[in-house]
Amino acid sequence: MQTAMVIKWAHRSFTAILVIIITAVAVNFCLTHQPYNDRIYHKQQLTSSLWLYITQYQHAAATDTEVYRYYLNHNITGDPLETLTKTAPFMTADRPDATVNALANKVTVRITGKIYSFSNSVFFYDDKVAVMPVVDLYASGINNWR
């Protein structure tokens, strides 16, 4: 009888601790994963069905570098930020002046600067048709001592 009661209370305590941990992780995730606070910096048509969108982070501190996010999508009517916040950028960099060219479904990106993240996997829908362009990246570093 005593053993069953100890096991029951140990189980209840363990379950309560797990609920507290899971709740804390969920709250932390919601607080730290807010949507980007960006503005549209540049919009450019690459092909008849492929557009480049560059956004700029608006609240960088004085000592932080600028952050620019590069997106590929179809021509978005209305506010593009609503659509772009639901997708991931294919490149995040500290420079907005990357040269981006496209031929059919192949996109070439040339940039000099710091790249924070890059993915050559881009996916979006254009009138219920899946579009998956191939992205090639040519990057050059910069000399910080000049």
Rank of each mutant, 00 (worst) to 15 (best):
L52D: 12
L52S: 06
L52E: 15
L52G: 07
Y53A: 00
Y53T: 05
I54Y: 09
T55W: 07
T55A: 02
T55R: 02
T55D: 01
Q56D: 08
Q56S: 12
Q56V: 12
Y57M: 09
Y57N: 07
Y57I: 02
Q58P: 05
Q58R: 13
H59E: 15
A60W: 06
A61G: 14
T63G: 10
T63S: 15
T63N: 14
T63Y: 09
T65M: 11
T65R: 05
E66Q: 14
E66K: 10
V67I: 11
Y68V: 08
R69F: 06
Y70T: 04
Y71R: 04
Y71D: 05
L72N: 08
L72R: 02
L72V: 05
N73R: 02
N73Y: 13
N73T: 09
H74R: 09
H74A: 14
H74K: 08
N75L: 15
N75D: 15
I76D: 01
I76P: 02
T77C: 11
T77R: 00
G78K: 01
G78I: 07
L81N: 01
L81G: 02
L81K: 01
E82F: 10
E82C: 03
T83D: 11
T83G: 00
T83P: 01
L84S: 00
L84I: 03
L84A: 00
L84H: 03
L84Q: 01
T85R: 01
K86N: 10
K86W: 07
T87W: 04
A88C: 06
P89I: 04
P89N: 08
F90V: 00
M91I: 02
M91H: 05
T92P: 00
T92G: 02
T92Y: 03
D94H: 12
D94R: 13
D94M: 14
D94T: 14
R95H: 04
R95L: 03
D97E: 15
D97Q: 12
A98T: 10
A98M: 06
A98Y: 05
A98K: 10
T99M: 15
T99R: 15
T99C: 11
V100I: 15
